[in-house]
Design a protein around this nucleic acid. Structure first.
Lengths: 389, 389
DNA sequence: CTTGAAATTTGGAACGATCTAAATTATTCG
DNA sequence: CGAATAATTTAGATCGTTCCAAATTTCAAG
């Protein structure tokens, strides 16, 4: 036999609803239905709050609040009752109200300079994973490299009370642009691109060492005319990678001709134009270190357009190790930066600072490693070697 | 001669600060400095609120609020004074408080099933552009195709009071999963994947027509054994595209052998495995329509691994028209879905519903068009034709 | 001057949670 | 059984904004 719950309401005001739950089988079904309608009406009319839950469960709003916070102070029986009511009335927690009172939120902001670049999309995914599991949600904004837009989104995030910010700064961002944000005391972690004297933590990768390793590898494989292709020359990342390229050449006693360094947009399309320009040189390069993987893919495209097979006829090395690098044909030799892992570490660093209250700014330079695949010709050489032996 | 501003404070309570601005040159610099320190101390200690601004500017908090909202009711002189004070004290608007009072926010949520797929990254960029210019910010979450994660993020977004939601549902999402959200009355726009009977607006693309157009094109170019490669067979999008493929074959009197339809993950890696499987068939296909561009790129990679040149030796058509499709080599023939444009339209649809309060659910099926580039062999044929004429 | 209308400004009550300090109830133990 | 203690529960203030209704000031016309 199932027990019917009959519900009676006393509607004091439009919002002040007291609910009596009676297991009274004598009430007619009609009456039950009637009041149920009242009830549902009240539900759709106004949003359910802790006070409603408190009334319905027959406790005070303080108790409901304690239950919501999972406090150990509240009796198990009470907790169960409150939780049941919460589910029954379809209560939705209002974080705006909580944020207001506690003056802290469970939101972190992440602003990237180019979301269409899969490096940054993966970075965001890495951040998301960590941040979600810590009970935060992320505000994500894309600046498209525009400083003005960056200013806007950062301001907007501050207004929403984010408790921390992960920023991959737009091109040309200066310490002064970040000053108001930093002064406000909100933890900030810079990723990918560091900004001198900004006084905040940063997480970059060892671009110089990566470039050195890549160029050394090309030199070992016998290349002498090595180009550096793609990227905007006015960024710190470009500067570091290019310096690594230069240093490795000098170390080997090779000259680093300026003509072999050709900048371009750090995209696939940019890679195509960069390799075209490089191949116009009288003394053509036989290998290239590319600013990033997107450029490297573009370079492969450009080579094919000239009937050259990347890997076999021309060695290509990328930078970043995006997901596609592994499955591309030929698989891309690249300096692995692990964007998702970087996002995760950035998120962890940020969370640490948020929890610590006020931490010293730390600069972490993540190590990178050269992942040798086919596009630099290694596999082909190995095959040849195997055939000979 | 420059005028020095001397500042004197009366500190009633820790937070109740009244500021008198006097142009009084008789006050000593020392005193000025002393009070400035008080001032700055107050600034770092507590956050600046409308009340602080009101006191400092000598008006009521109501007036400050009106200025903040750009109300035409307030006198120009007053407005200027208040704005100056706001800038001076470095006031930051607290949206949590405003949201609480107004019970509405300027936040929209966007949840995608796979952010590492550049189709969705671009979709998000499109949404962001529209939404930002309407003064909203976006919460972005990535579900990685996991229904449980999707449930969590949607709940979290509701708690934060988003005024609307754009969802590209995870695989296997049912109308029942969305019911509580829909019942709450929050405007929802489904993108990419529609869900039957969910009762919400949706914005999909004409997958059937796109597939038909693509396959017709291949048939016109003389292909008879055409494969359909990639994608998870249990999604509506797969179903629609595959049906279009079938219909176009039948229309031409060709038989649609089951063996020529090979599913896989809708990624580059999936494309590689799909084409490998298809090429194992006794009666190999000479062309393929791929589930999406990522698969198509994978198929090209797989072909090259077999020493076949996409475009010349095997015709490949993709679906989506992601940014890279244009610059790839060979440029990818694909059914253009315009992810950024789709994101923009979804955002516009959502904003319309938010402003309208309660709008009828509308299902928009965006038209698609076949963009013929090189990967289906068209360019080669054209070149041949030109050579002959 | 008045006077009435128009233009500005304002006090104080919301919004929905949390938190403190105090009140209430339950339990233990001599 | 009563006091002491532990375990629960609660009233009421508070966070920073908006909004209503009412107060105040300004201004033009009589």
């Amino acid at each position: 036999m199932r027990t019917l719950l009959h519900l009676r309401f006393r509607v004091a005001e439009i919002k002040n609803v007291t609910v009596f739950l009676l297991t009274d089988l004598e009430r007619s079904n009609y009456e039950c239905e009637k009041y149920r309608m009242f009830w549902e009406d009240a539900l759709v009319k106004e949003r359910v709050t802790v006070v409603d839950i408190a009334h319905a469960a027959g406790v005070s709003k303080s108790t409901v609040s304690l239950v919501l916070q999972g406090s150990p102070l509240v009796n198990e029986v009470t907790r169960a009752k409150v939780n049941a009511t919460i589910r029954e009335l379809g209560y939705v927690y209002n974080r705006s109200a909580a944020n207001l009172r506690q003056s802290k939120s469970k939101i972190i902001g992440i602003v990237v300079n180019d979301l269409t670049n899969s490096f940054f999309a993966e970075l965001a995914v890495g951040v998301d994973a960590v941040v979600q599991s810590a009970g935060f949600v992320q505000f994500l904004a894309n600046t498209s490299e525009k400083i003005e837009r960056q200013r806007e989104v950062v301001a907007s995030m501050r207004e929403h009370g984010v408790s921390g910010l992960i920023i991959s700064p737009a091109r040309g961002t200066e310490a002064a642009d970040l000053a108001p944000l930093v002064d406000s005391g909100i933890p900030v972690v810079l990723v990918v691109r560091d900004i001198a004297d900004a006084g905040v933590s940063s997480l970059t990768s060892d671009n110089h060492a990566g470039a050195v390793a890549a160029v050394r590898h090309l030199i070992e494989r016998g290349h002498r005319r090595i180009a550096f292709l793609g990227g905007f020359p006015d960024t710190a990342v470009f500067e570091a990678r290019m310096r690594g390229y230069r240093d490795a050449l000098l170390e080997a006693g090779l000259d680093a001709a300026d003509a072999l360094v050709v900048g371009s947009a750090p995209s696939r399309a940019g890679g195509v134009t960069a390799i075209e320009q490089a191949m116009m040189l009288a003394d053509r390069p036989t290998a290239a270190l590319c600013f990033n993987d997107a450029v490297a893919f573009g370079v492969c495209d450009g080579l094919r357009a000239r009937r050259l097979e990347p890997g076999a006829d021309f060695a290509v090395i990328g930078f970043d190790d995006v997901i596609e690098a592994k499955t591309a044909v030929p698989a891309l030799t690249t300096v692995s930066v692990d964007p998702q892992g970087m996002g995760q570490r950035a998120a962890e660093l940020l969370l640490k600072q948020i929890n610590a209250g006020r931490a010293e700014a730390e600069s972490i330079i993540g190590s990178v490693r050269l992942v040798v695949r086919q596009s630099c010709g290694a596999a082909i050489e190995r095959r040849t070697r195997e055939a000979l032996s």
